[in-house]
């Protein structure tokens, strides 16, 4: 088995006539934390959504854990994946959204047990036991029965992380997980993510938190206008960018 968890080669994606991804090349190794930086509209969310099969790639190749995203290759022919196969592939990848997207009609526990029960067919009691442990891990043992509306943004995002972890994913995608949070709540969420990274989870994190990218990231990728402008070791990219566009962007956010 190769050490690559995500491999993107010349990935293109258009919405109608607007080309959003214009040939992305990127590698994320197993156990690595890759931080995606870039100005708004540069295609970061679209790229994450492609990795998680929420969007289809128009051209190029994108594979996760050695398997093509959205297609199955037999000989030299590509077959589109059926809905069930896509769902199965998604269940192995966790995703955390900027706006949490917790299910508002379920408690924190309900949110976390839902997919293990429905998708993996876990028993209710086993799923609940694991969910409690996960909620404890993200520091919310006392909020098990709270509905999302009764939780702060930071607490909701930590429930969302627990919900994704409950599927025991091999890869976690974070799309600006702290951008919708009040500044004083950002730290708790970043701490949970740091803990995950230390436990060896492979993560792709879209973020504007330069401190996090510098300390936790193994690689930093700077995207602009649908292409990767610069990538490499966090300290060298953030402290010593080579490209003008990277310099301009970092000048604004730092």
């Amino acid at each position: 088995m190769s050490g690559l968890m995500v491999l993107a080669e010349n990935v293109h994606k258009s919405f109608g006539r607007v080309e959003v991804l214009k040939g992305i090349d990127l590698e994320v190794r197993r156990g690595e934390v890759c931080c995606l930086l870039g100005p708004s509209g540069s295609g970061k969310s679209t790229f994450l959504r492609c990795i998680n099969h929420l969007e289809k790639v128009d051209a190029g190749r994108l594979s996760v854990d050695g398997k093509l995203v959205g297609y199955r290759q037999q000989g030299d022919k590509l077959y589109e994946l059926k809905e069930r196969e896509t769902a199965q592939a998604r269940s192995e990848i966790g995703m955390v959204f900027q706006r949490f997207n917790l299910f508002p009609h379920m408690t924190a526990l309900g949110n976390v047990v839902e997919a293990p029960i429905r998708v993996k067919g876990e028993s209710k009691s086993a799923a609940a036991d694991r969910a409690r442990a996960l909620l404890d891990r993200v520091g919310l043992a006392d909020k098990v029965d709270a509905y999302p509306a009764q939780l702060s943004g930071g607490q909701q995002q930590r429930v969302a992380i627990a919900r994704a972890l409950a599927m025991q994913p091999k890869l976690m995608l974070f799309d600006e997980p702290t951008s919708a949070l009040d500044p004083e709540l950002v730290g708790d969420v970043l701490d949970v993510m740091r803990g995950l990274a230390e436990d060896g989870m492979t993560m792709v994190v879209v973020t504007h938190e330069m401190g996090f990218a510098r300390e936790v990231g193994d690689t930093v990728v700077f995207m602009d206008g649908g292409v990767v402008v610069e990538q490499g070791d966090p300290k060298s990219v953030i402290n010593n960018p080579q490209e003008e566009r990277t310099k301009a962007f970092l000048g604004k956010v730092l």
């Binding site: 998680n52 809905e83 959204f97 997207n101 917790l102 997919a115």
Partner: peptide
């Protein structure tokens, strides 16, 4: 909200 469908599908629900 569309984010609800997205979150559900991202978890592997059909």
């Amino acid at each position: 909200d569309e984010g609800q469908t997205e979150a559900s599908q991202a978890l592997g629900m059909t």
